Simulated scan of single mutants.
Amino acid sequence: MAAGSLAAASAILYVMNASWLASAPDSQPQLLAHRGVYQHYNRDGLKNDTCTATRIAKPTHDYLENTLPSMRAAFDAGADAVEIDIHPTTDGDFAVFHDWTVDCRTDGKGVTREHSLAALKALDIGYGYTHDGGKTFPFRGRFKAQMPSLSEVLTAFPDKAFLINIKSNSPRESEKLDAWLREHPEAHPQRLSVFAGERSAQRLAELRPDLKPVSKQALKTCGFTYIALGWSGYVPKACHNTTVYVPQNLTWVMWGYPNRLQERFAKAGSYIYLVGPMKSTNGLPSINTPEDYAKVPKSWRMGVATDSIEVIGPLAKSR
């Protein structure tokens, strides 16, 4: 009787989570280009304050992250959305730039958000890049005044989607972004999503749930709760109306992967991006190689995040 009960329970559990019994969302997979097309760098031993511009590989193209040409190249390569980083400026605007300070990449000094937009746009944002320990600086002098504002980015690509990374954990910054979007309806917020610090994401969820804001902590809460309870078909509240990133090496614990997982989260108003295998290194793990992309199920109809859109874009198109 015990064996029979266990077999029956296993059968029910299997049927409830069988991917082949569910249909994937009626959509096309979306490619998210993390950083656009940019200069790749050595990630060994990275810390939060590591100057990545001084450890790039020998350049094979002329694009720098968070610039309009980089974004255009990403879209041309097949990206459906591009991740960008923003900082508020002292004059009430937002600059698109990665680092907390301008010291590493530019010819300026100081905390990024303690500058006006005009001061930031006067900088040479290619100044600090080197691939040979400072012997040469291949982008120095070539990217003067090329740090864009958020308005310039959204105006340049009016029909494209963006993941905005708020580079702080301050609720006040979410309030600033909300106010900015109210003043700029032409930005079309429905094409935007947001990644932020925990407090910042929570505040933005109150102000603009349509942006599907998410933080690292929210991702952990969603993931762990779904792993514990998702076998029953339950999608926890933390997984509703948000954006979720699922590492390839953890898909086996995501109940119903791939089709039933997509079906459940779509009904909960959420969107899933597959990312690369979770490692101990900093940053978003991405799907960057043909081998990684080959592991994406052909029935996958949600997102794929990549740091190498120039590689993955053509593969996705051919599939």
Results as ranks from 00 to 15, higher is better:
210 D>L: 04
274 L>T: 06
181 L>S: 05
42 N>P: 03
273 Y>F: 15
77 A>H: 03
132 D>A: 05
150 L>V: 11
317 K>L: 09
136 T>L: 05
270 S>E: 09
194 V>T: 11
265 F>L: 15
180 W>M: 06
154 L>K: 05
91 D>K: 01
282 N>E: 10
183 E>T: 09
88 P>T: 03
45 G>R: 08
216 K>W: 09
90 T>K: 14
70 S>L: 01
80 D>F: 00
32 L>F: 09
229 L>P: 00
246 V>Y: 11
200 S>N: 13
176 K>I: 05
118 A>Y: 04
64 L>G: 03
43 R>Y: 00
168 S>C: 11
200 S>C: 15
302 M>N: 10
150 L>A: 13
112 T>V: 06
126 G>R: 06
142 R>I: 02
235 V>Y: 14
261 L>Y: 13
317 K>I: 08
298 K>D: 15
299 S>Q: 14
190 Q>K: 12
270 S>C: 06
101 T>R: 04
90 T>Q: 12
114 E>N: 12
186 E>W: 14
154 L>V: 00
103 D>H: 04
10 S>L: 15
110 G>P: 05
170 S>Q: 14
75 F>M: 03
210 D>A: 12
195 F>R: 08
215 S>F: 11
38 Y>C: 05
184 H>E: 03
91 D>E: 02
213 P>H: 07
115 H>P: 04
35 R>L: 09
15 V>N: 01
53 A>L: 00
77 A>G: 03
27 S>A: 15
313 G>E: 07
146 Q>W: 05
295 K>R: 15
280 S>P: 00
172 R>N: 10
84 I>E: 02
103 D>E: 06
261 L>G: 00
275 V>C: 14
270 S>M: 10
130 T>F: 02
